[in-house]
Nucleic acid binder design. Structure first.
Length: 607
RNA sequence: GGGGCUGUAGUUCAGUUUGGUUAGAACGCCUGCCUGUCACGCAGGAGGCCGCGAGUUCGAGUCUCGUCAGCCCCGCCA
């Protein structure tokens, strides 16, 4: 066999067309398919760029070359030299980009043989996830994955382009950092040099990017790897990539503007889609009121309506008791649901109950008249008032839930999504972005009877609610009461949502030490402990910290949405299983006793 | 930590409800034939620790218990 320098490709497998007819070319690639007709041999050669048919005719090619080519099997790597020729009349393949031509081979070489692959390399695979992950290098040869990684690359490039053009610096932050409480469980790395001490792998560059603001790098971004030792989901991997950014001397509107600009650039460059800006903004409480979820899917309507006032005194005890105890009654209208069968209603009721509802009341506005098991309690007038409020006409259905406010909204929010999916109300090919803003700063932790940070510890209260932080604010209310002043504080925090998926969140940060310390105290951290854990941030805040804020968006989720995938594994080259294992390289794995000894570690037990 | 689903040729699955002769199919693989195929075709062939371990039984792919792995969900998590 000649040296490879003489067998190097002159063209890729995706670029030859009728315009190249007559050219002498060499192709390198993998055998996608071979069709040996005895006296005539066709091979489809594949690379990242496409597929080209080569043909060997024993009458026109050296015997040795033909013999070699008949040995070629699926996934062999080959080099073929020949002349581009038009396909004979009637044999053009319209379904193939290179289908008008073929390469008539006169020299053929096998560069590498392949074992029979455990699954076939085709666009739609039936291979199990286990096989696909174990043989990831084969799975990655498939066109859908190659397309996903291509989109991912172009997305990353568009993001870098946008921020670079707007004077942002991409600055790397460390991977080995100190472990801090709050948030997710850390992955930890033992230190050899300092025995019995550990680094943590970053859950995000959060504190470092704030330090960069304090250092004066007032426009920062990074495509940052982030690691969390928590259980996995279809949209959660132990390591993922964030589009992280932070700016100084800004209000939230400045952040929104940059992100909207970046998203517009990204979607135009990569998908050719024009986005409308500005994205709509809704306060957290408004989102919960109208859609029952903090990441509403705006690709369909069916908003939730409050009918508490209408039914408060209607005589139906289930409703009036709930109202008396401070609860609410809310409803949503399913257009065209008036002919729902008993079975369909029962199924929906089961869903509601699984979500914690006591039950599901309903009004069916069928052709034959309105049907409702609660009619005899609420009467015609109240029924009509409810239908008017939720805009239910003849042929529609109304579903009603009553409970505490947040619970009622969440249940209806989930029902709304289920109904939207079941009845295919969700419009495809729409990109509905929105901002959800002003989340509560604190979240009540029932198990521990204390307050947790709803987002993170560095989110600033909105100006209006800042007085509620005051140490001396008198109140008799326990923190379990949702009226407690601390629980009424709203944070200058925002989530970016696309089609019902949370892409990420950010906030205007606390830039004054005493406020940061107060928040840490409220979260149950003594001054000593705060100093120990966050001392470096608190000290940095004492040396001229500018007002600043930013956001971090999940790149994996963005690319998954852009490529129409439900699972972010499809847009990550080397992902992990649901139990955080990599089936290809076999991690996590044992380490040697020597490694352990060097780190000063030993196992408690081997169970 | 909890729940649901799945595990049988190289692969994807059927067979498990009702235990019983030699565990089937398709694709892939191997051999032969075939000069215009592109899901090539035709003929033949090889290929099985029924995830693993106990148990029940005269007898287990099939029943019971345990265990491991994968997927999805809740908890957890930005």
């Amino acid at each position: 066999m000649p040296s490879f320098s003489e067998l190097k490709r002159t063209h890729t497998c995706g670029e030859l067309t009728a315009a190249d007819v007559g050219k002498a070319v060499t192709l390198n690639g993998w055998v996608q398919e071979y069709r040996n007709l005895g006296g005539l041999l066709f091979i489809d050669v594949r690379d990242r760029y496409g597929l080209t048919q080569i043909v060997l005719n024993p009458e026109k090619v050296a015997e040795t070359a033909f013999a070699l080519a008949t040995r070629a099997r699926h996934e062999y790597v080959i080099a073929a030299t020949g002349v581009v020729q038009p396909r004979p009349e009637g044999t053009v393949n319209a379904g193939m980009a290179t289908g008008e031509i073929e390469v008539a081979v006169d020299e053929f070489h096998i560069l590498a043989e392949s074992k029979t692959p455990p699954f076939e390399i085709e666009d739609v695979t039936e291979a199990s996830d286990v096989l696909r992950l174990e043989y990831r290098y084969l799975d990655l040869r498939r066109r859908p994955l190659q397309n996903n990684l291509r989109i991912r690359h172009f997305a990353a490039r568009a993001i870098r382009e946008y921020f670079s053009d707007r004077d942002f610096y991409e600055i790397e932050t460390p991977l080995l950092i100190r472990s801090t409480p709050e948030g997710a469980r850390d992955y930890v790395v033992p230190s050899r040099v300092q025995k019995h001490k550990f680094y943590a792998l970053p859950q995000s560059p959060q504190l470092f990017k704030q330090i960069l603001m304090i250092s004066g790098y007032d426009r920062y971004f990074q495509l940052a790897r982030c690691l969390r030792d928590e259980d996995l989901r279809a949209d959660r991997q132990p390591e993922h990539t964030q589009l992280d950014m932070e700016m100084s001397f800004v209000t939230r509107g400045d952040i929104f503007g940059e992100i909207e600009g970046m998203m517009t650039h990204l979607f135009r460059k990569v998908l050719g889609v024009k986005l409308e800006t500005p994205f709509p903004r809704y306060d957290y409480y408004e989102a919960m009121n109208r859609w029952g979820i903090d990441k509403p899917d705006l690709r369909f309507g069916m908003e939730i309506n409050d009918i508490t006032d209408i039914v408060a005194d209607c005589g139906f005890k289930v409703f009036s008791d709930v109202v008396k105890n401070g609860g609410v009654v809310k409803a949503l209208c399913l257009k065209g649901g008036g002919n729902y069968s008993r079975k369909q209603v029962d199924e929906l009721t089961d869903v509601a109950k699984q979500l914690g509802a006591g039950g599901l009341a309903y009004i069916l506005r069928a052709e034959t008249g309105d049907k409702s098991p609660i009619m005899k309690f609420i009467g015609e007038d109240v029924k009509d008032a409810i239908c008017a409020k939720v805009d239910a006409s003849a042929g529609d259905a109304v579903f009603i839930v009553s409970d505490k406010k947040l619970k009622t909204e969440s249940i209806l929010g989930q029902l709304r999504l289920q109904l939207g999916r079941r009845h295919e109300l969700i419009k495809k090919d729409e990109w509905q972005f929105l901002w959800v803003t002003r989340f509560p700063l604190f979240e009540y932790n029932e198990d521990e009877d204390r307050l947790d940070a709803m987002h993170n510890i560095v989110s600033s209260p909105i100006d209006e609610d800042l007085p509620l932080l005051d140490r001396n604010l008198a109140t008799d209310l326990p923190i379990s009461d949702w009226q407690h002043p601390l629980r009424r504080i709203r944070a200058e925090q925002y989530d970016l949502v696309l089609n019902g998926t949370e892409l990420g969140s950010g906030s205007i940060r606390v830039h004054q030490r005493h406020i940061q310390q107060r928040i840490l105290n409220i979260l149950g951290m003594s001054d000593e402990r705060a100093e120990k854990m966050f001392g470096f941030l608190l000290r940095a805040l004492e040396y001229g910290a500018p007002p600043h804020g930013g956001i971090a968006l999940g790149l994996d989720r963005i690319v998954a949405l852009m490529t129409g995938n439900d699972n972010i594994r499809e847009v990550i080259a080397f992902p992990k299983t649901a139990s955080a294992a990599s089936l290809m390289d076999g991690s996590p794995s044992d380490i040697t006793p020597e490694q352990l000894r060097e780190l000063g570690l030993e196992f408690l037990s081997r169970d």
